[in-house]
């Protein structure tokens, strides 16, 4: 196992975590909501892939995209908008409740056992380059992360909705007083975070081919850890945090003696605690919520 091989594996796992972290960080940045239901945006998309098994793959991905974006917007309209001005703790508890509700609704629909789908098996097949084994999906994960992070940075910094989003993030009341339709801006943030969730879903299912109604939870937990390490509210911080957690996970997987393997997560979270002890505000500390990318 060469160093380069390890780097590719770390980057591809890290990319998935980074995308999750950015999706969570964006919503937190704009409305201060720690959205535990984010994992469910990822999870429900996987079941759309299950139901559209056999479709031409772009059609299946489009179905996921449409469903998850509507799902995320509906969660905002029906739930989060109702408690828009509640304190952050309330928002968080509400998102917890929503997350559980969706999970058990999916248990009702699909059962709690693992379901499998053979989605795009071609891209998870590996190929060899100069002694390295690279899975196509790893490259996609790295590529998607880079492209989406860059696109989001450009969107937030150089478009009208982008600066309105930053304004709502900084001072929602003043944003309303200059005529910004904050509900529309918040909806845009939910739609973008849904788009990131769809990317994670597609790559995750292509890689593992399996799902349960609970698989979003662990991804969300790791996404949160990544956002906190990176500095909650800083999008580049989220991306960095995601990559670091991914790298750490991959590293531990390789270096830990087999007896300790089952406790890998404990080591990851211990590392997080150490990082936060040294830098309590995360690696990239920000003063306001949605920092320039």
């Amino acid at each position: 196992m060469t160093f380069l091989q390890m780097l590719i594996d770390a980057a591809s796992v890290g990319g998935l975590y980074a995308l999750t972290a950015i999706g969570i960080g964006l919503i937190f940045g704009v409305i201060g909501l720690v959205n535990f239901a984010y994992g469910e945006y990822i999870m429900v998309g996987a079941y759309v892939l299950l139901l559209t098994a056999g479709f031409y793959w772009p059609v299946a991905v489009l179905c996921v995209l449409v469903f998850v974006v509507i799902f995320a917007l509906a969660s905002d309209w029906l739930v989060f908008r109702q408690v828009r001005r509640a304190p952050p703790e309330t928002l968080m508890i509400v998102s917890f409740g929503l997350s559980f509700m969706i999970q058990y609704f999916y248990v009702m629909l699909f059962g709690s056992l693992t379901r499998t789908v053979n989605f795009l098996p071609e891209i998870s097949r590996g190929f060899e380059v100069g002694g390295l084994r690279i899975a196509g999906v790893s490259l996609l994960q790295i590529g998607a992360t880079l492209v989406l992070t860059a696109a989001l940075a450009i969107f937030i910094n150089f478009t009208r909705i982008g600066y309105q989003m930053r304004a709502v993030s900084e001072n929602p009341r003043m944003a309303r007083l200059v005529g910004v339709n904050s509900n529309r801006i918040i909806a845009a943030a939910f739609a973008i975070s849904a788009l990131l969730a769809v990317t994670v879903t597609v790559l995750f299912v292509a890689q593992t081919g399996s799902m349960t109604p609970f698989f979003g939870v662990s991804l969300t937990m790791i996404g949160f850890v990544a956002t906190v390490i990176g500095g909650l509210g800083s999008l580049p911080g989220c991306a960095l945090g995601g990559f670091l957690v991914g790298a750490l996970t991959t590293l531990l997987q390789m270096l830990l003696p087999p007896d300790l393997q089952p406790f890998r997560e404990a080591f990851v979270f211990a590392a997080v605690i150490v990082v936060l002890l040294v830098r309590p505000r995360g690696l990239i500390a920000v003063r306001s919520s949605l920092e320039r990318v």
């Binding site: 600066y163 900084e170 001072n171 003043m174 910004v180 949605l290 920092e291 320039r292």
Partner: peptide, 14 residues
């Protein structure tokens, strides 16, 4: 209540 994180130009635009 100017938007501190927006540029001067963006503050006018908004």
């Amino acid at each position: 209540d100017i938007f501190a994180k927006l540029s001067v130009h963006e503050n006018l635009l908004i």
